[in-house]
Structure formats: structure tokens, C-alpha cells
């Protein structure tokens, strides 16, 4: 900072900074911290990479037609994920079917109808607190309500209902956000045409919010597919070699299958677990990609 005299008379001593010596140290602290940042982020990414590598390098070689088309077996070489895969897909579809109307309805009520501040706030806090309840507690509730209380037994339907309760807060929150993103002018225009509240919501607000809502539902499905703990409580642990019927007893899903195989210390079964994880991750990836595509597609059609 002393090297820039601007005129014939050199800049006076005032130009010489007074606190310089410590500045080097202060800057060094910043550089060190940035290093720590990069280290932390690097460690996270490394963990992710090792995890994926560990799973894929083990699992992918086991992925073949046989694996995808057979049921579990005591012999690793003949085991497969078909019942679990079908179970997962069935459960995910059921969860979507259940949470879609209920979740969207709740969101519409909270965003478009409820005007009483206190009730509204109570409902909202409740929903956000529900999102913090451990999933296994939902399992306990599902066991008491659906399996025993309603007498559904250890069926896929009971499992889907339990997961629906678990996922519902996520769907409601996502739908509320989608509804909130619809511009006010949209509503007012429809009201101005003499629409009733419901006509406005159905004809004008919902279509505009559809991409967001749909995306939320699909992402919720992806989450439901990965859930394990609550399903253990509502009975998805059986050694299932047949394709599940939603209302008959006996079903399994991918995470449970993974859990069973992962608990078996034999090398081959560890690989089976890795292969099943690969299938699960692919499934989740497909759902996520679908969500992105839908959002892009629909929002292009519905520009406002």
C-alpha cells in the first residue's frame, strides 16, 4: 500500500497502514477456516462416494434377470427381489392414492379456507410437529390402529395406511407451498368473474398449483419407498415368495428385504443386500427424475 505515490511529492506517511502486522495473521485465520470448510465438504462427498462405491461395486454384479424375477431363497444364488420390488411399488402407489386427496384437501383448507388465525396456527404447528415424530412411533400407532384396532391384520394395506400417516405432513407442507406460490391476481380474477370459493380453487388455483403438488406427492412416494422401521411393526417381515395381495396377509418391501439380508453375515447375502439397495436407489432415482420432469413439463403448459 506504500508503493503508489500519486504526484511529485510522495504520499505522506499517513498512507502507511497502522495495523498491518496483524492483518497477515487475520487473513491466515480466514484461509485456514476456508481449508476446514473444504475439508468438511470434501469429507461429506468422500463419504457419499465411498458409500455408493461400496454398494454399487458389490451389488451391480448381482443384478441380473434372475435376481429381478425371483423371490428370496435360502440359497443366495437363487434369491431375488421380485416380491419386495412389487411390494414396494404397490405400497408407494397406495400411499400416493391415499395421501393425494387428503393431503391436498388439508392444504387447500389451510391455505384457502381457514381464516381463523388461532385454529390455523394450531393446525400448522401440529403438522410441523408431526413431521418430527420418529417414524417408528408411527409404526406403533399403525400397529394399534390399523392392524389391531381396525382388524386389517399384517396386510400391505395396513402398511400403506401407516406410511400414509407418516408421509401426510410432507405432502401437506409441499402442497401448501405450491398453493401459496399461485399469484393472488389469479384468485382475484376468478373471484371477479363471480366464482364461489370452491369454484375458484378448483378452476383456477389448483391447476396452477398442480405441478408443485404433483412433485410433492412423487417426492413423498420416494420417501415412503425408503421407509423401513414402521413397516417392521405392522408386519412386513415375512419371508415372502409370492407377489403380495394388498388385503391378504403377508408382504415384504425392498427396505425390509435389505434389512434381512444385511443382517446375514455371509458374504453372498451381503452382496444380495447391496444388489437390493441398488434396485431401491434406482427406484428412488426414477421417482425423483419423474418429479423434475413433471415440474418442468406442467409448468411450461401452465404459464401465468
Amino acid at each position: 500500500m506504500t508503493a503508489h505515490p500519486a504526484g511529485p511529492v510522495a504520499a505522506p506517511a499517513a498512507a502507511a497502514p497502522r495495523f498491518e502486522p496483524s492483518l497477515m495473521r487475520r487473513k491466515l485465520a480466514g484461509t485456514v477456516f476456508l481449508g476446514v470448510c473444504l475439508l468438511a465438504v470434501g469429507l461429506l462427498l468422500l463419504t457419499l462416494a465411498v458409500l455408493l462405491w461400496d454398494i454399487l461395486s458389490r451389488g451391480v454384479p448381482w443384478l441380473d434377470a434372475q435376481f429381478l424375477t425371483s423371490g428370496p431363497s435360502r440359497r443366495a444364488a437363487r434369491a431375488g427381489v421380485l416380491p419386495a420390488l412389487v411390494g414396494s411399488i404397490e405400497i408407494a402407489l397406495l400411499v400416493a392414492l391415499i395421501t393425494f386427496p387428503v393431503g391436498v384437501a388439508a392444504a387447500i383448507y389451510l391455505e384457502e379456507y381457514a381464516t381463523d388465525g388461532r385454529i390455523n396456527r394450531l393446525l400448522r404447528t401440529n403438522i410441523s410437529n408431526l413431521a418430527g415424530v420418529p417414524s417408528i412411533v408411527y409404526g406403533i400407532f399403525g400397529l394399534a390402529l390399523f392392524v389391531r384396532g381396525l382388524g386389517l391384520g399384517f396386510t400391505l394395506l395396513a402398511g400403506a395406511l401407516t406410511l400414509s400417516l407418516l408421509i401426510l405432513p410432507v405432502v401437506i407442507i409441499a402442497s401448501m407451498e405450491a398453493l401459496r406460490a399461485v399469484p393472488h391476481a389469479q384468485r382475484e380474477a376468478a373471484f371477479a368473474l363471480g366464482g364461489s370459493r370452491w369454484q375458484v380453487v378448483r378452476g383456477s388455483v389448483l391447476p396452477a398449483a398442480a405441478p408443485g403438488i404433483l412433485t410433492g406427492i412423487i417426492l413423498a412416494m420416494a420417501r415412503a419407498i425408503g421407509e423401513t422401521a414402521p413397516l417392521i411393526l405392522v408386519g412386513a417381515v415375512t419371508f415372502v415368495t409370492f407377489l403380495p395381495n394388498p388385503i391378504a396377509s403377508g408382504y415384504t418391501v425392498l427396505p425390509i428385504q435389505i434389512f434381512q439380508w444385511a443382517g446375514d453375515p455371509r458374504e453372498d447375502f451381503q452382496s444380495l443386500a447391496a444388489a437390493a439397495i441398488t434396485v431401491l436407489l434406482v427406484l428412488m432415482f426414477v421417482l425423483n427424475a419423474l418429479a423434475i420432469v413433471i415440474r418442468a413439463r406442467l409448468s411450461r403448459h401452465l404459464t401465468w
Binding site: M1, H4, P5, A6, A10, A11, E20
Partner: peptide, 19 residues
């Protein structure tokens, strides 16, 4: 310039300038 020194010049630290 600040007292004749180019504050955007090479080697000038904005931290010192702002102080």
C-alpha cells in the same frame, strides 16, 4: 486514490481501505 494511493491498486487490501 486515498492520500495519493490507488486504493484499487495491486497489493492494496480492501480490509485496510475500509478500516
Amino acid at each position: 486514490t486515498f492520500d495519493g494511493v490507488d486504493i484499487y491498486g495491486r497489493g492494496v487490501d480492501p480490509v485496510v481501505v475500509r478500516r
